[in-house]
Design a protein around this nucleic acid. Structure first.
Length: 466
RNA sequence: UCCCCGAUAGCUCAAUUGGUAGAGCGAGCGGCUGUUAACCGCUAGGUUGCUGGUUCGAGUCCAGCUCGGGGAGCCA
């Protein structure tokens, strides 16, 4: 007897009539007076459950089958047959059903066979993967992650495992989580009363990374095309459907490249992974289109087919000024684009993704390359309808003198960046890269409204449960 | 962190000007049916988020707290 996953059975990989064993969890049970029960069993390998037909002639029919409830774990053996019903092509005619684990007190089982709110399911995050939605999210998440690695591998990128713990308290991307083994009830003090981190584990202050970019640039300057894909941490008190304290980020970095190359990569990369998603997880995407966001498949198809708009920051400002809209936040050259501005550009003005390029240097990071005009830097943001900023990137400043000047202008300490500056002293090359928020990508693809529902165990202010 | 809203049965919600808490789903039992968001009947299920206050009387009004949601900022 062969043992197979339900995905393979439903995909027709096993000939009808074959005797198989299936292991999974019960979704629903319906009994018929014709002397049989119908079980929907899922093993998570695909969206659809397998229908199992159980005749009342099985020895444990009265004592066990009729008492099965949602969530029970089962081993079903039987023959794969063409279904007599209309809801599915094939079904399993059971010759034995073994119950591995019962659900104690079905009345209070948190995942009843009914619709639950996402807010509620977050409180039972250990059980929510058993629902249609969260099973689908998990498979889509995996599919996109695999597609990302595959694309980058096929295009000659090397995956660099940049550190999670960093002693750079100067990465400049917001509040950081401190990593310490000091006894917080009895911290060592220096003479001036400040905490003495020289006695801490690393002999200095240490933090969780907010970005692998500075580290990955070092490998970029040797391997040409590299990327990071790992968890990232921000200790910002952000309470929105788009922010997490712990999230995953992809950061490609390419040498011998400028901002235009960077934008081209971002576009080809995004289109490629969404194409993979549509072809490999059509079952889950059909579910999202039916129950979560009716437009999500059409949106991805349009995303793949139409070229991204490319727009100068200055032109974006002009478009906003000419829009006739009254924005809550003022529009002016030198000011950053607010959420409402980004939404207007992608959702009303262009109705598709746009790469906004060359921002005023004052509102961007020190490492972004200064343009000829002396007032803008080669930065880019990829904005998408419905989600806003999905990618932020730039060409990096490869000229040491200019980099030093920018470090000084921003009030940063040059010595803190000694190894980063070394890259500009030893065989510097033009290079560029960007950061893609993985959860936001999953959100965009599925239409899931809240970022807390596209990561298994969301970490947000006041919540690190599970 | 700021603004707005919310917390009532396992879940989703209702409850009139302050007057003894109700429905659907789920669960249990029974009926019916190659069923599939099944359908029909019956039953059980509540210290109304926490603390305090006003009142003869509070799910309802007031204050504080906790947690959740939406919007904004920060950003990916």
């Amino acid at each position: 007897m062969s043992e197979v996953r339900i995905a393979g059975l439903l995909a027709g990989q096993v000939p009808l009539g074959t005797q198989v064993a299936v292991k999974g969890w019960l979704r629903t049970r319906r009994d018929s007076k014709a002397g049989l029960s119908f079980l929907h069993v899922s093993d998570g390998s695909c969206f659809d459950p397998l229908q199992v037909v159980v005749p009342d002639t099985l020895a444990n029919y009265q004592e066990e089958i009729l008492k099965l409830t949602a969530g029970c774990s089962l081993v079903v053996e039987g023959r794969l047959l063409k279904s007599k019903g209309s809801g599915q092509a094939t079904e399993l005619q059971a010759s034995s059903v073994r119950v591995l684990g019962w659900v104690e007190d079905p009345d209070s089982y948190p995942i009843a066979a009914k619709q639950h709110s996402f807010e509620y399911l977050r409180q039972v995050a250990h059980l929510r993967p058993r629902t249609n939605t969260f099973g689908a999210v998990a498979r889509v998440r995996h599919c996109l992650a695999a597609a990302i690695h595959r694309y980058l591998d096929e295009h000659g990128f090397i995956w660099i495992h940049t550190p999670i713990i960093t002693a750079n308290d100067c990465e400049g991307a917001g509040e950081m989580f401190r990593v310490s083994t000091l006894d917080m009830l009895n911290v060592p003090r220096a003479a001036d009363g400040a905490v003495d981190f020289s006695e801490d584990f690393f002999g200095r202050g240490a933090y969780l990374t907010v970005s692998g970019q500075l580290n990955v640039e070092t490998y970029c300057q040797a391997l040409s095309k590299v990327y990071t894909f790992g968890p990232t941490f921000r200790a910002e008190n952000s309470n929105t459907p788009r922010h997490l304290a712990e999230f995953w980020m992809i950061e490609p970095e390419i040498a011998f490249a400028d901002l235009a190359d960077n934008a081209d990569l971002a576009e080809d990369f995004l289109k490629s992974i969404f194409e993979a998603l549509l072809s490999e997880r059509s079952d889950d995407m059909a579910f999202f289109a039916k129950r979560i966001e009716p437009e999500c498949i059409k949106r991805l198809e349009a995303f793949i087919e139409s070229p991204f708009e490319r727009m100068e920051y200055a032109d974006a400002i002009s478009a906003l000024e000419k829009s006739g809209k009254s924005f809550e936040f003022p529009v002016a050259w030198g000011r950053d684009l607010q959420t409402e501005h980004e939404r207007y550009l992608t959702e009303e003005y262009l109705k598709r993704p746009v790469v906004v390029m060359n921002y005023p240097k004052e509102i961007k990071a020190f490492y972004m390359r200064l343009n000829e005009d002396g007032r803008t830097v080669a930065a880019m943001d990829v904005l998408a309808p419905g989600i806003g900023e999905i990618i932020g990137g730039s060409q990096r400043e490869e000229r040491l003198a200019v980099l030093d000047q920018r470090i000084e202008e921003m009030g940063l300490n040059r010595d803190d960046y000694w190894w980063y500056r070394d890259l500009r002293r030893y065989g510097t090359v033009p290079h560029a890269g960007f950061g893609l928020g993985f959860e936001r990508t999953v959100q965009y693809a599925t239409g899931m409204a809240n970022i807390r529902d596209v990561i298994p165990f969301p970490r947000t202010p006041k919540n690190a449960d599970f």
